[in-house]
Each structure stands twice: as structure tokens, then as C-alpha cells.
Amino acid sequence: MTGAGKSTVISTNGLTKRFGSVAAVDHVDLNVREGDIYGFLGANGSGKTTTVRMLLGLVLATSGQIDVLGERMPANARSVLPHVGALVEGPAAYVHLSARRNLSLLDASGPNSKRPDRSARVDDALEQVGLGGVGRKHVRAFSLGMRQRLGLAAALLNGPRLLVLDEPTNGLDPQGIHEIRQLLQELSRRGTTIFLSSHLLSEVEVLCTRIGVLDRGRLVLEDEIAHLRAPTGRTFVRTSDPALAVRVLDGRVAEQRHDELVVSGGDPALINAQLVSAGVRVSELAAERHSLEDIILAHTRAGSDRVGGPT
């Protein structure tokens, strides 16, 4: 996927938020394009949530510009936000009311929400997140996972063009996570742009098409996952005859750890043929790719909730 011809859904320019003398978000230039499933990664305290809140007009930026769906925020919140669904720092609901009543109150709060199809909209949203059967139950009786689904339903109520989700699978069991992932992929296929803020690399890895990495308030990386995870040009080999393999490959072994070799250059298929014909027993062989974890660790420093002395 390339970015050519796709319009920009979120773009920030020099976005900065200071709390006193601390810059929680420091000159961040985000660029999220239409159709992206954008993984917004960063350690706890790196400024993810503050950035998300600024995108939605909850927190006001100290300096910098934000454009969402082609309009300046927060000045145009009234025309932008009806097309945005969001889940920010966990779901919230009136626990003494039913799930349906919660969504219906939320729907009635928004501008230009038409009353006649409200009930259909609410049912539809509950159905999408798998809460169709418990709409009349009080939220007080909901599990964490069910509340998370209700929060998602609230985000989907508008039929949004952009979904901003902060840790959407928090509190869900593996089945629930899988289900929500499928839902997000389905929404993405239907043209919804998804901005997914998370610290779960695995989740981002399977779902996202692009990532942005925030480290102590700065955007240190923004790229396509496919590009980041492209083969490095080296080949990973696991063999039970490492000494023999090294001899056969003749100086092309870049790294060796016990029975694992990293071979530089060349076509993996060719290397495999070479090894096998020389009688080396190969148990694993693949083009080397960086894991998302390696990439992110290479771009960031120690966890930002570690508070050390001056460095």
C-alpha cells in the first residue's frame, strides 16, 4: 500500500503540550491517511493519551496545529467530531442505566441526531460489538470486557469515518480480542480509518498498516509496517550441524549463536539448497525480518515511567 492519492485524515504540525515546564507532547507531526489502520505506539507516559485527547479537543494544545478530516481542530469540533468515534482511556457509562439507555442518552446528546432512527442505531451498534442480547441489562452488572464492548458501541454509534481507539481490547479475553480485531478489520474494509493507540505490540503487529512511535513526547518513527518488516537481506538458519554449515557458507555467516546462524546476502532458497546438498541438516531457515519489538526498542529509550537520576 502506498500513500499516493489518499487524503489525509489526521495531520498535526508541531503539536506541543506543556504541563508547566514539562513537554508531555513535543513537536509531533502525525500523518494518518485515509484507510490506514494506524498503530500509535509508545510506553506508558510517552504522551499517547495526551495526543489523543488533543486530537479530540479535550485537551488544548500549547502550540501547533491539528487537522482532522481536513478541518482545523478544535475550532471545527462541531463539524468534525460527528464523523469521529472514540474510545479514550477506557469506557465510561452510567452504571445505574441499561446499555441501551446509555447509548440512547449519548445519541440524544449529539447534534443532528434524528430521533426516529435512534433505536435502530443503538440496536445496530450493540449488535456489532456482540452485546445485542444484554442491551436491557444495567451496566452495573457488566464485566470489564462487556463495558469495553459498550464503549466500542458508543464509538460506532455515529457510523464514523475515523475511529480513535485507546487500548480497545483492554479487559477482553482472547476470544473477545479476536472478535474485536475482526470487527476492526471489517470496518477498515468498509473504509473506516482507524487510529489505534496501544502499548501492545502484538496487537498492533497483526492489525495495523502503519505505525507511529512516541517516545517521551516525541514522534521518533512513522512508517508502513510492511516497509519496516521487510526482509533485511539476511537469512536466518537453525541447524544441528553449525560447524559444518559455517564451513559450507564460507565466511558469509554474520552472526552465530549456538545452532543459530545469520547469513548475510544471497537468496534464502539458494542458501538452503547449498546447505542441504552439502549434507547439513537444516531445521529452520527464513529470510530475516526485524520484529516490531526490535524496531521500537532501537528507536526508543528505557521505559519512560522509569524515573532515574539525571542522565
Binding site: R53, L56, L81, A86, P91, P111
Partner: peptide, 14 residues
């Protein structure tokens, strides 16, 4: 306190 304020404001309710 219960977190619904942020969801009201991004509905959006001015």
C-alpha cells in the same frame, strides 16, 4: 468522575 464527561464532549456537545 465516572469518565462520561469526555464522551459527552466528543459526541460532540459544546
Amino acid at each position: 468522575q465516572i469518565g462520561t464527561l469526555r464522551y459527552l464532549l466528543i459526541r460532540p456537545v459544546s
